[in-house]
Design a protein around this nucleic acid. Structure first.
Lengths: 238, 238
DNA sequence: ATATTTTTTTAAGTATGCTTAATTTCTAAA
DNA sequence: TTTAGAAATTAAGCATACTTAAAAAAATAT
């Protein structure tokens, strides 16, 4: 019996494909629309030709649907794979920070590697060890084993904060290693409580105070910091 | 200025090269002699042609010294790299078993992957978390950060055990996933204490008793189990 | 010393996932 | 509706790490 020509439609899970799926998923999550091919190329730092190649392969395997000049979207199957990679990434991040005490600034990069090299059995152990957490250290929801996603946490960004109010730092956009290093250096870490002292109209920067530190935060940075308002005892509104 | 032709003598650490170095190191450690190319090909399940290619590359990078028809040996540089991979492997094994409670039977395989994807900073954290251990769950020494190797532990194998004496199971040869599954299933796990009840000359099998289980162990298996003799209080010999 | 066998190398080919350059296809604006 | 420009594809090439088949080199046996 002759082997049919394209017989090989099996695994299709490589580091590259996992990264494509993740990016496609995230763009859709953040912007609510399908990503277009040129944008995807930029995001992944590859050429348009590479996207063209890979899109063909992912389509063939039923992981994306791609209408040219329109954009790229995950199929259900592709979305499940993306959620799985994201699950591994976020569980590793939490584990590296909470259990192994790795510095924030190194965690993202290492999780970016480990997410592609972790068996389901191992990630389940980590999940169990952490007590089946719903959120990673950035406040992002961790996809569950069954593929469902906990409801997102809604935080405001510092750019929306109000002078005089108190907040707790809940979440920092990752992918910006330098930002996290900087914040760590000045002592402005996750779960730090602070007061907004001033908002300068001039450059849209914020002056905040935590512990005994007064810090000026630029507009750009303020947009990457997510907060929960602290309601002081006594001022609970009913 | 023209680029010189083979300008690229930099990193040279890939999954493949790490596995070559590990095998070369281990053969030398176990047999006390350099491995020959054909043997290495068998061990790595690749063709002789692949060895020929790779040996050239590893030599060029100063990681091995290779005299054809004689054998392959690590240089100091190559040995340091090998020790580093082995360090990562053994620390991961211990971590997966002790901290994450992974079953023995899955640990070797997963460590085999993670050893190639772990930054120095991460492995140092794991080392610290475990309290800078000297031995992995098989009783093998864990290379230290500085490249030194703790003194080996000398255990006897069950095949050398004496009828009537008490022992503790200290070490099991890995690479034999099925053996480890079997031992776990029958409850004969690491650190189990047992008595040798009988040694059958007939087939060189052993009958041992631990907890309330009596187990017959074939000659083949007995050679893969390593023991420490238990000296009962009172029978200390001076 | 010669023949046989084993070891080793070379040559050509494969798959993945990229690259650049050239070309084609489609959109959108005049 | 034509056309300029953007988007997408194709073609050829690269690196890694393999493969098989054939050729060459060295070791061993007679």
């Amino acid at each position: 019996m002759l082997k049919s020509p394209n017989f090989e439609l099996k695994n299709m899970s490589t580091i590259s494909t996992e990264n494509y799926l993740k990016k496609i998923f995230n763009h859709n999550k953040v912007f609510g629309e399908k990503i277009n091919a040129v944008k995807l190329a930029q995001e992944l730092s590859v050429s348009n030709a590479a996207i063209s190649d890979m899109a063909k392969k992912l389509s063939k395997h039923g992981l994306i649907s791609y209408e040219k000049y329109k954009g790229i979207e995950l199929t259900d199957k592709g979305e499940q794979m993306a959620l799985n990679v994201i699950r591994r990434h976020r569980l590793w991040e939490l584990f590296l920070i909470k259990v192994l005490n790795m510095p924030w600034s190194e965690v993202h990069e290492q999780a970016e590697v480990l997410e592609h090299h972790t068996s389901e059995k191992l990630i389940d152990r980590i999940d169990e060890f952490l007590g089946y957490p719903d959120f990673d250290p950035h406040g992002h929801p961790i996809p569950r084993k069954n593929g469902s996603l906990p409801d997102a946490q809604y935080y405001i960004s510092l750019a929306e904060a109000v002078e005089g109010s108190s907040y707790e730092l809940m979440q920092v956009d990752d992918h910006e290693k330098k930002l996290i290093s900087y914040l760590t250096k000045v002592g402005f870490v996750l779960n730090t409580r602070f007061v907004v002292i001033d908002k300068l109209d001039f450059d849209k920067s914020y002056t905040i105070k935590f512990n005994d530190t007064v810090l000026s935060v630029s507009q750009k940075i303020s947009e990457s910091l997510y907060l929960k308002e602290i309601i002081e005892a006594g001022e609970k509104n009913g």
